[in-house]
Amino acid sequence: MRILLWHVHGSWTTAFVQGGHDYLVPLVPGRGPDGRGRARTYPWPEPVREVPSDRLREEELDVVVLQRPHEIELAGRWLGRRPGLDVPAVYVEHNTPAGDVPRTRHPLADRDDIPLVHVTHFNDLMWDAGRAPSRVVEHGVVDPGHRYTGELPRAGVVVNEPVRRTRVAGTDLLPEFARAAPLDVFGMKVTGLPYGTFEDLPQHAMHAELARRRVYLHPYRWTSLGLSLIEAMLLGMPVVALACTEAVEAVPPEAGVVSTRLATLTAALASFIADPALAAQTGKAARAAALSRYGLARFLQDWDVVLSEARW
């Protein structure tokens, strides 16, 4: 199949484009948010082709994969075909609703011509999808391999824009966690935090550095899941996470500690730092759990079903 999608979510797209189809990603001058083209920090296969936005009308497509509300209008303008009406489309919802969550309707809630695909059951639970046909395709992650050494008695955290997203990402909690363990923060715009920081590393380099840390800390209060959590588990890291998102489903008891109690979380962090054998054993269980639930083969198979059903 020939699939048009935007480069929005690097880790999710990296998994999605492993499926053996032909993938087209828009390219705009300056590689802005609506046309980043091919990823530069993620390993994408050759069948992912960047196409200048002004040439998209020339492309034959089987389906458009939408990920942001304004892409519906954007696709209509660039393609000369309306998603859901003139060309098959599906909409992937990566995010949890914002604002007054119990009363938040999805932008597609009043349409039934574009299927809505949630990446977690937590998303599906939180959004009011109205009459939009909806389903869940849980994440799949490219396995980085068991790379854990845990040689550094420090906790690794992955969060983009921690200052802007303070309470959402839980970065206001980091000072409390730092009393239990030294912290290293990886991601975009992390420089300037009073911890070790590693900014904008290519994915393979970030994985190598993260795996040297004794434990992975996932402080998010409000998100769909956070693929960095699954990647850390696949690396073989034990995890400590807030019980606020799909993390309660992703992390079984043998793989780490998930709680809403800050005292429980900080105690777990200190325990893993102090006991390398416990950390390694828990990390092995975390990797097994992630492989079982978030394997790439299952993810791609599920998406093939969605795409084949969407195609006219």
Rank of each mutant, 00 (worst) to 15 (best):
R2Y: 04
R2Q: 12
I3T: 14
H9D: 13
G10F: 13
T14R: 15
A15Y: 09
F16T: 11
V17H: 05
V17I: 12
Q18R: 15
D22A: 12
D22C: 11
Y23Q: 12
Y23R: 10
V25N: 08
V25A: 11
V28L: 13
V28F: 01
P29H: 01
G30W: 03
R31W: 01
R31L: 08
P33F: 02
A39C: 08
Y42R: 09
W44V: 00
E46G: 03
R49E: 14
R49Q: 13
P52N: 02
S53N: 09
R57M: 11
E58T: 13
E58H: 13
E60G: 05
L61G: 00
L61R: 00
L61M: 00
V63D: 03
V64Y: 05
V65G: 04
H70N: 13
E73P: 04
G76D: 05
R77A: 15
R81K: 14
R82D: 06
D86N: 08
V90P: 01
P97V: 08
D100V: 02
D100G: 03
R103I: 00
R105C: 07
P115N: 05
T120F: 02
F122C: 05
D124S: 14
W127K: 08
G140L: 09
V141E: 07
P144V: 11
R147W: 02
G150I: 10
E161S: 15
E161T: 14
R165I: 06
R167N: 06
V168A: 12
D172A: 11
D172W: 04
L173K: 04
A178D: 13
A178L: 07
A180Q: 10
A181L: 04
T197A: 03
L201K: 05
A208Q: 10
A211F: 10
V215P: 09
Y216D: 01
Y220M: 06
T223E: 15
S224D: 13
L225V: 04
G226I: 06
L227P: 07
E231L: 00
M233F: 02
M233I: 01
L235W: 06
V239M: 06
V240C: 04
A247E: 04
E249G: 00
V251F: 01
V251L: 03
P252A: 03
V258M: 03
V258N: 05
A263W: 07
A267Q: 14
A268K: 07
D275N: 13
P276F: 01
T282I: 08
G283I: 09
K284V: 13
R287G: 11
A289V: 06
A290K: 01
S292Q: 14
R293L: 12
L296A: 11
A297Q: 14
F299P: 11
L300H: 11
V305P: 05
S308T: 14
